[in-house]
Design a protein around this nucleic acid. Structure first.
Lengths: 143, 143
DNA sequence: TTGGGTGCAAACTATTTGCATTCGA
DNA sequence: TCGAATGCAAATAGTTTGCACCCAA
């Protein structure tokens, strides 16, 4: 998770297209964030996104990063992963899958969905509909 | 989750016994917290625990509540449930089970484990051991 | 007596919000 | 032009910490 190494930036045209497809108006800052984020499979906290974006030389304010991540998540471009009590991760892997979280290092990784079966789902409480099923496997270094 | 109604308090002797069994020195404040908490199946945030304890007329400081909940969780008396980015819940149901979380109301409830199958577990990353498997089913009110 | 436990207040950190400014259609 | 987006700073909220005091063994 400390891998903030220079990921290839998504080209601006593709980023703009992805935003439009999601019904998001592509503004300058949103494009920068999309270019950094929507490339490959990543699990980043808001702070890490801010750091990566600012490292491109085109800084974006912290509030805008938070607002934009929230917006992207609402529109289905990202998935919020609530795993660590101290921060939210944003997962760019849009395929259904679950997570392995290393509680000692904070490293978060994906597990293909078919490796974990979760069915049948129990009846949901009356008057509610399913929003998501999240499976988190927490691991720690061997003693 | 707003049910802070007067749950029956666990008697002091049983509370003390449970603490000792868990290897926790039973002090006055820890006993009060245990009496409020270790009765029935509950899902409370630290703030809710504080409120319940203080309502008994024997107040305990906020710092002590946080410290004590952390200690109880370490010793296996409680389980931390990380489900809402803004606060940690403490679950007194010690049997293995999973959770249904209503994102609109913040209500958290249990699901018996056998209703959700999660196997086989994937191989864990090298050098790690399993800490927990958490399944959270998020629901929202029907549109 | 003496080290662990407690309480208070201050510190911290992730996140949100209000509002004036700027931007994009 | 005009409403939406942005940025900054201040506000918020949950949680942690430092340290002096207290208490159970």
């Amino acid at each position: 998770m400390n891998d903030l190494s220079p990921h290839r930036l998504l080209d601006e045209a593709s980023a703009a297209e992805q935003l439009r497809e999601a019904g998001i108006q592509p503004t300058r800052q949103r494009l920068r964030i999309a270019q950094v984020l929507l490339t490959g499979s990543q699990h980043l906290s808001a702070d890490q996104v801010l750091e990566k974006v600012n490292r491109t030389g085109k800084p974006v304010s912290k509030a805008t990063v938070y607002n934009t991540l929230g917006l992207f998540a609402d529109k289905g471009l990202l998935r919020e992963v609530i795993i660590d009590p101290s921060r939210v991760f944003y997962d760019t892997n849009s395929a259904p899958h679950h997570h392995v979280y290393n509680t000692a290092t904070g490293e978060l990784s994906d597990i293909a969905l078919h490796r974990v079966l979760t069915e049948p789902l129990p009846e949901l409480p009356a008057g509610t509909e399913l929003e998501s099923v999240d499976v988190v496997i927490r691991v720690r270094p061997l003693d």
